[in-house]
């Protein structure tokens, strides 16, 4: 049964091929096979959203997608949000607004929030909270996350703020 299957996908804009077993989740392949460890596993049953990726533009829990189902699909992970050294306005606003503490849920929130702003450039606070309710955060109480999404919406809305910001300022910290 464990015969490996060849899968062709596009991940973060790059054509990507991998071999997987039928039983491997997309999350497992992203993390263990492709070493894209930005997507996190918090629960394994679709209740925390830490593994959220975009599958053909639609947010999904990658722990509940079989890797073989990704055949022919276009996948965006948190690693695909920034362009070159320029952070996505959401990433920039999360940093400036201190919208993360431990950071483990952050990739999932960023990917879901991107999907939201892609569809709805001016979401209300309630809409933001509703669409992000599939992503759990235990550190922040959500206040600063919601505000960061609001800020990113403003930045993307063309006041030019997003363009002014270059890459993150401080140097990356040690692991």
């Amino acid at each position: 049964m464990s015969k490996r299957i060849h899968v062709s996908t596009t991940i973060n804009g790059a054509p990507t091929e991998f071999l997987c077993e039928a039983r491997q989740s997309l999350l497992e392949v992203l993390r263990d096979t492709l070493r894209l460890t930005g997507s996190k596993e918090g629960c394994g049953n679709g209740n925390c959203g830490a593994c959220t990726v975009l599958l053909d533009g639609v947010p999904v829990d990658s722990c509940l997608v079989l890797a073989v189902e990704a055949e022919g699909a276009d996948i965006t992970t948190v690693e695909g949000l920034a362009h070159d050294t320029r952070l996505h306005p959401l990433q920039q606003c999360f940093l400036e607004g201190a919208a993360l503490q431990c950071g483990i849920c952050t990739p999932g929130f960023l990917v879901t929030a991107k999907a939201l702003l892609d569809r709805n450039p001016k979401p209300t606070e309630h809409k933001i909270r509703f669409q992000l309710s599939g992503n759990l955060c235990r550190c922040t109480g959500y206040d600063k996350i919601v505000r960061a999404v609001q800020e990113a919406a403003k930045a993307l809305d063309g006041n030019g703020r997003a363009e002014k910001k270059a890459a993150a300022k401080p140097r990356a910290a040690a692991h």
Binding site: R31, K40, F94, L100, P107, P170, A172, A173, H175
Partner: peptide, 21 residues
């Protein structure tokens, strides 16, 4: 100020325990 480990944590580059190989 923006936190020093911020860029790593919003890009998915920060290495958490489960990310280690």
């Amino acid at each position: 100020p923006v936190r020093h480990d911020g860029a790593d944590k919003v890009t998915g580059r920060a290495v958490y325990g489960a990310d280690l190989q």
